[in-house]
Design a protein around this nucleic acid. Structure first.
Lengths: 199, 199
DNA sequence: GAAATACGATACGGGTCAGACTCGTAACGC
DNA sequence: GCGTTACGAGTCTGACCCGTATCGTATTTC
């Protein structure tokens, strides 16, 4: 909920900011501990937050609205490319995929996969989180083209998918258990840069 | 459950094979229609299959065991690379990602993402499904190296992730709504082959 | 201090589901 | 035909949950 602070100051006891925080935190904690989105109950959140159920229903219309708000808090911060070497910037961005400041994010992300295909709201939320990250990578690629480091005829959108996909399936799905996640960003970037074709 | 057909033929009415089939089919149908794994109830499966609940409990210990069996049926068939052009074979394999013969598979796959990180059984199941596909791609890449079409110093495992990742995040997560899924396999393969570096 | 609103706690009716159970019936070997 | 087992359908108990309402109490404005 957007806290419209310019309200004409209603009478009565104001809503507790601590309760707000506790509810959001409890929601994220429970998700990070392994609960799936739909197994999550308002009652469990209330108990975990040390809050009455009414306090939650006073703020949100239901679980969906609460979740939307909670997940918004999880965005984390964008990685900031240094701007010197295109390759190093790409390694930084690729390495940042699925690695948010909030360690709970990594646990929660896979839960969104089913939701994304089911609810337009969740899909929009997901896009809102990742589209600035895509934009960041897009800018680095464009810069690379301008500087002549990258070919001018590449498909920037496909290239972004090429850089993001491997990292995402590895971090979210553990696609290939034998793949070393630590060195993966560098190896992905270099492979994409050089191509695999003999020449 | 593995049908141990060498049993000494127990007395009484044998279990109905049609019931077996109906239960599995009902499970997959319900999942494909949008039910999530945990929203799926034995009661709903029984009703859909036209079967008593006891008939299900007689065969499986619970929902998890049933699901494991049901998902096993979903494997689909492996794409068969023609073996002529390495590029064409890769396009075929990449295009086959997330496209099983059973159209229900595409709807069900995203549901596995959360499960994979939660249950060792589900993780193993998932790996059992995808590892033969990885192997197929690995062989094509090795062939490419042998034929001299691909460089000998490439990292085969990383290359597989490079080819698979973009397709998977697009089909499962709709990662970038602006990306045309139809032409993606070709564009991914070509981009990986050629690299993006100016030279 | 009075009115207003919030708080945590708890109770409520209504709902879904798991699993074990009971029917009467059906299919098998002997 | 008889014992055995499976069948579909249904019942029952005990959980768990939703969303609302109602406690007594706390915090704010006027």
């Amino acid at each position: 909920m957007t806290s419209t602070a310019d309200a004409p100051r209603s009478p009565g006891r104001p809503r507790s900011i601590r309760a707000d925080e506790a509810i959001i935190e409890a929601t994220l904690d429970l998700l990070a501990e392994g609960s799936t989105i739909e197994a999550l109950s308002i009652e469990a959140i209330a108990t975990r937050a040390g809050v009455g159920k009414a306090t939650i229903y006073r703020r949100w219309a239901g679980k969906d609205a609460l979740l939307l708000d909670a997940l918004r808090r999880l965005k984390g911060v964008l990685a900031q490319p240094a701007g010197h070497s295109v390759r190093d910037d790409l390694v930084l961005l690729v390495g940042a995929i699925g690695k948010n400041v909030d360690p709970r994010a990594a646990k929660i992300m896979p839960c969104l996969a089913p939701a994304v295909n089911r609810s337009a709201d969740q899909f929009q939320l997901y896009q809102n989180i990742i589209s600035p990250r895509r934009q960041l990578m897009r800018e680095v690629l464009r810069r690379g083209i301008d500087e002549g480091v990258l070919r001018a005829d590449i498909d920037v959108e496909v290239t972004m998918a090429l850089l993001t996909g491997p990292m995402l399936i590895q971090r979210v799905l553990q696609w290939n258990p034998d793949l070393d996640e630590q060195s993966l960003p560098e190896r992905v970037v270099d492979a994409v840069l050089e191509g695999i074709q003999a020449r």
